[in-house]
Structures are given as C-alpha cells and as structure tokens.
C-alpha cells in the first residue's frame, strides 16, 4: 500500500493536487430516436480536479452515465468541448480516443464487464499489455495489485463466471488500475453487488483515492456517495448543485448528514 502511494505521489504532488484534470465547456449530448430528439446533457461546464473523488448523482435519466462516458472519451458529445490533461478530447477520432483511454483512463462498470472467455489475470494483462509492451513488468504490477485487493493466485487464474460478484469487481478494479491511469471512472460499481461486496469495493476505491488516484464515480446510492469529497447533482442534463465534503474517514455521520441535506435540497 505504501509503495503504491509513493508511486502515485511522484506524479501528483501537493502542488498540483487540485489542478484541473478534465474540463468541459458547454457540453451537450443529444440522442435522436425515430426523429424525436432527447437532450441528455445541456451546456455543461464542469471541471474535474486531480486527486478528487468526484461523485455524480441524480435521478434516473438525469444524464449521469452519459456525462461519465463523455468525460472519458467513450462517447462523443454533440456539442461543446472536453479537455483532458490539456488535450482536446472532443477533437480526436475514435481510434485516437481509444489510444488516449488506454494510457489515461481506468473503468469500473456496474456490470463488471470482464471478458468471460479469459481468466481474470488475462483480463488484466490484456489491458496492461495494450499500454506497456513489457510483459514481465505488467505481470508483476498485476500480481501486486491482486494482492492489494485481496485476490489470491487461485482466484486470478479463474474465469469471471467462476468468481463471486465481489471477487470479479475487485478484479475489474485491478484492471482499471493496471496502467496507473490519470483518472478512474466508475459507473455504479456496487450496483450489482450485495452490501458486503459493495462495501469492500468502495473501500478499495477509497484507498486508491487516498493514495492520490483521481476518481469520478456515478451512483444513485447514498452510502457510495459519501465516499466522495465532491458531489455533483445532475437534473435533466444540467448541474443543479455541488457539495464539497471532507476526506472520507469512515463512519462519519456529520458528512452523511451534510450530504443528505444537500441532496434533499436538490429534491432527491
């Protein structure tokens, strides 16, 4: 754990901790279905900062996941700009975005989305070898991360379908972190897990953030939301409000109350 923190702080020092990592300008996303246009994101201006655990909340259909995937270059905005680490993401073609993602982004999905025809280790190695040609280096890092998330060799040799939900999601976190991404995107990471597994996954994300990993997480779950230090509320594609929280310490009721109050004000 300490080694991980040291590595991370090499890039993200206290001086740049709150520097802007991603910024959007008048971000719009519109879907057309049978000639009917649906404006999911409307003129969003947003900044995501280094080291933050940013949580995006909102009612169903607010545009949370759309925003998440737009920020990561997985989906192209209809209008507006996205700048990521100084690069104009919205100007890149899909292949350039893919190359960008492999070096800068990690993903944790609600449905986990591990390739079921590969072992857990192979899922991680496929992501790692994509960005790093040094097979041995990637393998060593993978083993290290598996140890950190509490998965033994017997587990990472298994196929995803042979694992429990919690084990699989922890494997997905390893995959997300294998290339030391600038930012980790998590879309409802505990949505498909029971509370015990969900808690374990949240602990891992919290630990990673405490070690300097920038995280953007979409959730509609209050318990998950309390892990963040910055909560953004979306309604009808527009940011209605933002709540800053202290760093998560675990079992802090005041944080939870503050967040509840904010969400109540948003009409949640």
């Amino acid at each position: 754990m300490k080694e991980y923190a040291k590595e991370n702080t090499k890039e993200y020092t206290k001086e740049n901790m709150k520097e802007c990592l991603i910024s959007t300008k008048k971000l719009c996303k519109t879907f057309s279905t049978s000639g009917v246009q649906q404006h999911v994101l409307r003129n969003l201006d947003l900044e995501i900062r280094h080291g933050d655990f940013t949580v995006i909340m909102g009612a169903s259909g607010a545009g949370k996941s759309t925003l998440l995937y737009a920020l990561s270059g997985m989906d192209n905005p209809t209008l507006g700009e996205i700048t990521f680490n100084g690069e104009r993401l919205s100007k890149k073609n899909s292949d350039a975005q893919a190359v960008f993602r492999r070096r800068n982004c990690g993903f944790v999905f609600q449905q986990i989305y591990l390739c079921d025809n590969m072992s857990l280790m192979d899922n991680v190695m496929a992501a790692g070898r994509l960005a790093n040609k040094n097979r041995a280096q990637v393998a060593d890092r993978a083993r290290e991360l598996f140890a950190q998330v509490g998965l033994a060799e017997a587990d990472w040799r298994k196929f995803p379908a042979q694992l429990s939900g919690g084990e699989a999601q922890r494997g997905a976190i390893v995959r997300a972190l294998i290339n030391k991404p600038a930012i980790l995107f998590a879309d409802e990471p505990t949505g498909a897990l029971n509370s015990a597994f969900g808690e374990a996954v949240l602990d891992l994300l919290t630990m990673a953030n405490q070690d300097g990993q920038s995280i953007v997480m979409v959730t509609h779950d209050l318990k998950s939301a309390t892990r963040g230090n910055r909560v953004i509320y979306l309604r009808d594609g527009v940011i209605c409000g933002e709540c800053a929280l202290d760093a998560y310490q675990g079992g802090d009721e005041k944080r939870k109350e503050k967040l509840l109050g904010f969400l109540a004000g948003m009409g949640w």
């Binding site: 997985m74 899909s94 993602r101 492999r102 982004c105 989305y113 390739c115 496929a126 994509l130 960005a131």
Partner: peptide, 10 residues
C-alpha cells in the same frame, strides 16, 4: 465494447 473501452483501436 469492453476492449474498446480499455483502449483497443478499431
């Protein structure tokens, strides 16, 4: 989709 998300190009 997963592979594209991870960064594999078309």
């Amino acid at each position: 989709g997963i592979q594209k998300a991870l960064g594999f190009t078309t």
